[in-house]
Design a protein around this nucleic acid. Structure first.
Lengths: 336, 336
DNA sequence: TTTAGCACTCTTTGTTTCAGATTGCTAATT
DNA sequence: AATTAGCAATCTGAAACAAAGAGTGCTAAA
């Protein structure tokens, strides 16, 4: 456990470094941050904090920067999570009050809003389809050889897909299909279609394999599809001094370009509402120089997907977390 | 008009520079590129080409690089458009033969394929909705207060959207809506809804403004929506030596992050099948250090949208154009 | 316990130097 | 007349060095 003054010094170093991106010297803290001591005193505290692993030097005679342990301590113990202005609250409220008919729209709006307020690159994926139950499937004939399947889930999610056939199908056939699919699939988990049911359906309804097979295939495809990925404000990261390093910039572009990686990141570990991964804490080694903050956003108990912010380890954790908390709260009330 | 040998020298300089990204010296061309002359002779030709504006020096004693005029001459007069290997042809064919039910899928596949083959960043937008005619609108009740509208166009495009209501609506009502909308909209251009028709419908059907209004609003929204934008291989650009310059890299990220700009780029000027814009030839000044090659891809006469490749002015025009031509040809035959 | 003072270390910036690459031009060669 | 050899001139880029500045650690004084 750190003494009070050490905490203050650490907090000052972290916040100063987040603001300036320059190693923090002892003299820059005197008479700031409520620290009315000489630089020598601060220096002594810094030496202790360094020994304890909370801060580091970039070279023998440099100022200090927070270590990952330092950031972690700051996030867990020192950070204020109400770092959000009246204007920001107003802006967010307005954005989130937009009327939307589809979940995806809300995800997009939220992602953009977060990126605008925090000035960090923001990513999002749509809600997981795992554990969803099929409430109903509707089939609509769009043409003699074109059918649309619309799947409604228990959470109100709607997925639709177009199926094309080699031969004409009749309204009559569609009715039968409608009946049989709903008979079998209602209340079942979404991915049941990709199991033994497939064979069953094909056998049961063999009167027209040519019709059934494309339907099953297409439904399988649409439910196993990658979830939609959103990315906002990639260029915002490039304004940060960290991105003057070519290797950092390149690394970053590689990360955000790798959709699988991003999906993995957004899907991993959700111990809490808001999850912070600092540098090496990230599961993916590509992210060792970055920090990620993720949260699942929900309306009521409807999962809307996961939003993540990626930035340098020198990220404004306080601002980001404050914004996320506010959005979480705001979404809880919203109807959809 | 350039003499034959000057053409050869220019071509050699352009291709060598495209390959190496280094200014091309006179000696590096002797005994290469079918140029069996001494470096002094080449040097004389180079001096002439420079006077004529086709090549430039980076400093007094440097080798030469092509000017924009030089690239333009190369693209118009010297470039070979069959620069594509058997393996590449095979790869592209396989990719494009994937069976797809929706246009968007094909656009995505094509975009990815181009990026993989050319190693350049590739963008695409979906087909324009201008000039489309409504063939039919279908309404499907998804819940007591949830309706889906499915719009079929004359080109086989399908757009669907969900509409939510404040009050319950009946199957009976949906039938009426179906009838009236189709009565009025069939054969009309897609954007008619956003004109006088809106008032007409609301007046005509005032028996249930509360139902009609959200429908019209939502249909207006979905047809005026930004077209879907695809981006593939942003990181590929970062492998190019040009991107070791921080300002170039930053510029690039700003461009690809600005969706409106990208849409504009893909929508501008289509004089030919394949359009090449070199540096300052681009309408947008942000692109003055880049080259863009765009083409509209179609299946039969169905517009699938526009695909564009963005890269440095030192782009492998020959490869890119060859690939596009092949894809164009390949898609012509494909059914969808 | 705190602070003043100072030697020491490392970075950053600017300068100079030098080797190497390439050109343009002139004179010689084909 | 066209081509080429040869060479001075020019510029880049790397390396080596110097000087200034920022910041620390430590000692001794307050």
């Amino acid at each position: 456990m750190l003494e009070d003054r050490k905490k203050k010094v650490l907090q000052a170093i972290v916040e100063e470094y987040i603001n300036t991106a320059e190693p923090v010297s002892s003299s820059s803290l005197t008479n700031n941050y409520d620290l009315n001591y000489s630089s020598a005193t601060i220096r002594n505290e810094m030496a202790d904090l360094e020994k304890a692993g909370y801060i580091e030097k970039t070279h023998t005679s440099s100022g200090r920067i927070p270590s990952e342990k330092g950031y972690r301590y700051y996030v867990d113990e020192l950070l204020k999570d109400d770092n959000i202005s009246v204007e920001e609250i107003k802006y967010i409220s307005e954005k989130l009050e937009t009327k939307v008919n589809e979940i995806e729209e809300l995800t997009k709006i939220t992602t953009t809003t977060i990126s605008e307020i925090t000035h960090y690159t923001t990513l999002a994926i749509g809600p997981s389809t795992e554990n969803l139950l099929i409430e109903e499937i509707k089939f609509v004939l769009l043409g003699p050889r074109m059918l649309m399947a619309i799947i409604l889930t228990n959470t109100g999610m709607v997925k639709e897909t177009i199926i094309k056939f080699e031969e004409d199908i009749s309204e009559k056939q569609v009715e039968t299909i409608n009946y049989m699919f709903n008979q079998k699939l209602r209340g079942q988990p979404l991915d049941i279609i990709d199991g033994p049911l497939e064979e069953y359906l094909i056998n049961e309804m063999k009167y027209s394999v040519k019709v059934i097979k494309p339907i099953i295939q297409q439904i399988k495809k649409v439910i196993s599809e990658d979830r939609q990925l959103y990315l906002e404000g990639a260029n915002k990261s490039f304004e940060l001094p960290e991105f003057n390093s070519l290797s950092v910039a390149k690394n970053f572009v590689n990360i955000i370009d790798e959709k699988e990686l991003m999906t993995d990141i957004l899907n991993s570990g959700f111990a809490k509402d808001i999850n912070v991964y600092i540098g090496d804490e990230n599961e993916k080694k590509e992210l060792k120089d970055f920090s990620i903050i993720t949260f699942k956003h929900k309306v009521g108990n409807k999962d809307l997907g996961t939003i993540g912010i990626i930035g340098p380890k020198r990220m404004d954790y306080s601002k980001v977390i404050s914004v996320m908390k506010y959005i979480n709260k705001k979404l809880k009330d919203k109807g959809i």
